[in-house]
């Protein structure tokens, strides 16, 4: 059986909110080491890869590997019944045809219990190859969100250009064009606001901005976001979940002629 108590239940709410526009149904794979999820959007443009290690939970127990087929919209609805400070406990037995969710506020004066039906999701398991990225940008997650939203007002595409001086986001639409350039910050100041660029070679790629805006809904999970690019491969957009996992998105670029 699975019994996973998440002291910071809000983390689960944030994760589910961040992926709900991208995936409708997904398998949550539970093993002794934690919970993972991997799912592509229906148009095969974006892939979500979640890792929540057992350290995220206290306690965590998973005797045997379990796959929980979850309708994300249903989970969003049920999680709306929890408070932001609630401890969330997930419980499932074998065979996993339902998932029990228990919400407890810090006061412990209220316990709410929900049970959701699980689905049988036929999902191909994909292996994400290790990629040597040509450009890796670490920047404030809130800044990335703002830039994506700003670029979306002009165009459905955004071009990201990484050089050793900085990273430039630009958009060109029928109404006009715009760009935001972030300069590489000093190495001494390593606050969440600092932009750092690790460059093997200057890299430019163009992406659908609508997906990036969706990814950036993960902003509340982490202070920083990591963008990793190697043309013409998919870009990696990564949010770390404290020291106990990550939420990664892979996005296929626009095809360069």
């Amino acid at each position: 059986m699975l019994e996973a108590r998440l002291p910071q239940g809000a983390v689960l709410k944030k994760i589910v909110d961040a992926i709900k526009e991208i995936v409708s149904d997904a398998n949550f794979d539970c093993t002794d080491s934690g919970i993972t999820l991997q799912a592509m959007d229906s148009s095969h443009v974006a892939l979500v890869s979640l890792l929540l290690t057992s350290e995220a939970f206290d306690p965590y127990r998973c005797d045997r590997n379990l796959t929980l087929g979850i309708n994300i919209k249903t989970l969003v609805q049920i999680l709306k019944c929890s408070g932001n400070d609630d401890v969330i406990t997930l419980r499932a037995e074998e065979p996993a045809d339902t998932l029990a969710l228990v919400f407890e506020p810090p006061s412990l004066e209220r316990i709410s219990e929900y049970e959701m039906k699980l689905m049988d999701i036929d999902n191909e398991r994909l292996e994400i190859p290790d990629t040597a990225y040509h450009a890796e940008i670490t920047m404030a997650a809130s800044e990335f969100q703002r830039i994506c939203r700003d670029m979306q007002t002009l165009s459905e595409s955004v071009t990201i250009e990484a050089t050793k001086e900085g990273v430039k986001f630009s958009a060109e639409g029928e109404l006009g064009s715009g760009s935001v350039t972030l300069k590489q910050g000093g190495s001494i100041d390593s606050s969440a606001e600092t932009t750092t660029i690790e460059l093997v070679q200057p890299t430019t790629q163009t992406f659908s901005v609508k997906y990036l805006v969706n990814f950036s809904k993960s902003t509340s999970l982490a202070g920083q976001v990591r963008l990793a690019m190697t043309a013409p491969l998919p870009m990696l957009v990564e949010y770390k979940i404290s020291d106990c996992g990550h939420l990664r998105f892979f996005l296929a670029p626009k095809i360069d002629d």
């Binding site: 994909l126 095809i255 360069d256 002629d257």
Partner: peptide, 14 residues
């Protein structure tokens, strides 16, 4: 407008 690429072929099915 540049066409949108897809992820197929990049990730191996295991």
């Amino acid at each position: 407008v540049a066409p949108q690429g897809r992820l197929d072929g990049f990730f191996k099915v295991t």
